[in-house]
Design a protein around this nucleic acid. Structure first.
Length: 469
DNA sequence: CTATGGCACGGATT
DNA sequence: AATCCGTGCCATAG
């Protein structure tokens, strides 16, 4: 009887094991930490003890206290990076006030990825009247990727049975937060809001607002004569206005955010992400070893509670089955997390060696690398690599936080060479010229591709570059 | 006539 | 199997 009950349970275990390994790998450390927290609270078989093993000398230590012996990592050679799982509790900067989307409650952790809605909520959360919160949530969940509102404010008002003015008041509050103009119903409105707020500190040329109202399509650089005619001003003034708008305003407030193929309005996109991995250098020499810290999903050591394992022998009849599955799940979770960490550690050990140039000297030195190649080197499946890389953020020695996927960008190095080329040029070169030049430097790219890269970097076409600066 | 952007196709990547 | 990316062809703006 016992055997019969156990045999069928083993099968699902193996498939479940695989399934869970997969799903854990693609989580960021913070997401995983939340999952672990939840399991700890629910599953009595799991326990978290306040100690960990020093990555360098294998001593057992209290969690979050550095190893007295190895407080400085031992020096190793440039091609022998120091890679370890970090239990530092200050790995992530503390969050300021908790205002997460899910009902302003719950987690004490700063989310690893803050989406636009949460980012805004953090800013206005405190000053938002309680009864306006449902309205704000409605607005924030109706934003598209550009940060524009996709539903009619009247609809929102009707839905919540409030006057339209209440909704508009909330929208105005939202528009004044960081991606300035976010929550507007149209690009025009967004521009006007930005103008209004920036105008307080910035000196804006006169008639900018009129220009914006004249229509977005007239704001493109080559149509300044049309714009001039439309609002009755000299062409030079129109040009100046267009310039001001292009430099300071953004018709799609959220375009500068991460994950976007943000071309024209690329800005430093890193502010809203917390690293899963931190790389630092030991000294300032060129052959400094690199230190790679990988965020642990918890502090201390997660393990199956030995007491629980014993207690299960004489469990009460009605609880026996439940405890058994709890125990299996706990074991599984611990194993899977170990496997996840192991994969990431091995990945980083290779990656840091291959992309050393990129890490130390920047984009130009990025060596084109595909996830598939990496998977091959590490003897793991391609999809495993894909999951390990996706969604993770990594901090470089120069403090920049970038998506881990950037290490696998196939065109970044060519783009950065292109950027340099254009920066150094004396007279603007056409795309065709640039294509030939790049081929000469060992980057065979088609003329059309140069154009695409240019657009990606937000560089204007040749005939417009001449007047700039 | 030249330079550039749009559309779409095919091959690589995930 | 779905997606992304480089490229060729063509229309259009200058």
């Amino acid at each position: 009887m016992l055997i019969q009950r156990h045999a069928p349970m083993l099968r699902p275990l193996t498939t479940a094991h695989l399934a869970q390994t997969m799903s854990l790998l693609e989580l960021t450390a913070l997401e995983l930490r939340q999952k672990v927290e939840a399991e700890l609270a629910r599953n009595p078989a799991l326990e978290l003890i306040d100690e960990y093993r020093c990555p360098t000398c294998a001593r057992i230590l209290r969690a979050n206290s550095p190893c007295p012996v190895c407080s400085h990592p031992q020096v190793s050679s440039p091609d022998q990076p120091i890679v370890f799982l970090s239990s530092r509790q200050d790995f992530y900067p503390a969050s300021s006030g908790k205002t997460s989307l899910d009902e302003f409650s719950g987690d004490d952790y700063p989310p690893a990825k803050i989406n636009l809605a949460e980012h805004i909520l953090r800013q206005i959360g405190p000053e938002l009247a309680l009864e306006d919160r449902p309205i704000a949530l409605h607005i924030l969940t109706s934003l598209n990727d550009d940060g524009l509102l996709t539903v009619n404010p009247t609809e929102i008002a009707l839905y919540h049975h409030v006057p339209r003015s209440r909704v508009e008041k909330t929208i105005r509050q939202i528009q004044a937060t960081d991606p300035l103009g976010v929550g507007s119903t149209s690009p025009q409105e967004a521009l006007l809001v930005q103008l209004e707020i920036l105008g307080e500190t910035l000196h804006a040329p006169s008639l900018v607002a009129e220009a914006i109202r004249a229509g977005l399509e007239l704001l493109s650089p080559h149509r300044s004569t049309d714009l001039a005619r439309s609002i009755g001003i000299p062409a030079a003034q129109a040009k100046q206005i267009v310039r001001f708008i292009a430099d300071n305003l953004n018709p799609f407030p959220a375009r500068a955010y991460w994950g976007e193929p943000s071309q024209t309005f690329a800005r430093d996109p890193n502010v809203y992400h917390l690293p899963d991995i931190i790389i630092s250098r030991v000294n300032d020499t060129d052959d400094t070893p690199l230190v790679v810290e990988i965020a642990m999903p918890y502090y201390g050591t997660l393990r199956v509670n030995p007491l629980f394992r014993e207690a299960i022998q004489n469990a009460p009849e009605d609880k026996s089955e439940l405890w058994q599955t709890d125990l299996e799940q706990a074991t599984l979770l611990v194993k899977c997390i170990q496997q996840r960490n192991n994969t990431i550690v091995r990945l980083m050990q290779r990656l840091v060696v291959i992309q050393r140039g990129f890490i130390l000297y920047g984009e130009t030195h990025l060596c084109p690398l595909t996830r598939a190649e990496m998977a091959d080197q590490l003897q793991v499946h391609e999809s495993t690599m894909s999951r390990a890389v996706s969604d993770k953020a990594i901090q470089l020695p120069n403090q920049r936080i970038i998506p881990l996927a950037m290490f696998f960008d196939r065109s970044l190095h060519v783009r950065s060479v292109l950027k340099e080329l254009i920066a150094k040029e004396t007279s603007p070169m056409s795309d065709a010229n640039l294509a030939i030049l790049l081929s000469g430097q060992g980057y065979p790219v088609a003329r059309r591709t140069v154009a695409k890269y240019r657009a990606m970097e937000g560089i204007l076409p040749a005939h417009l570059r001449s007047q700039a600066r």
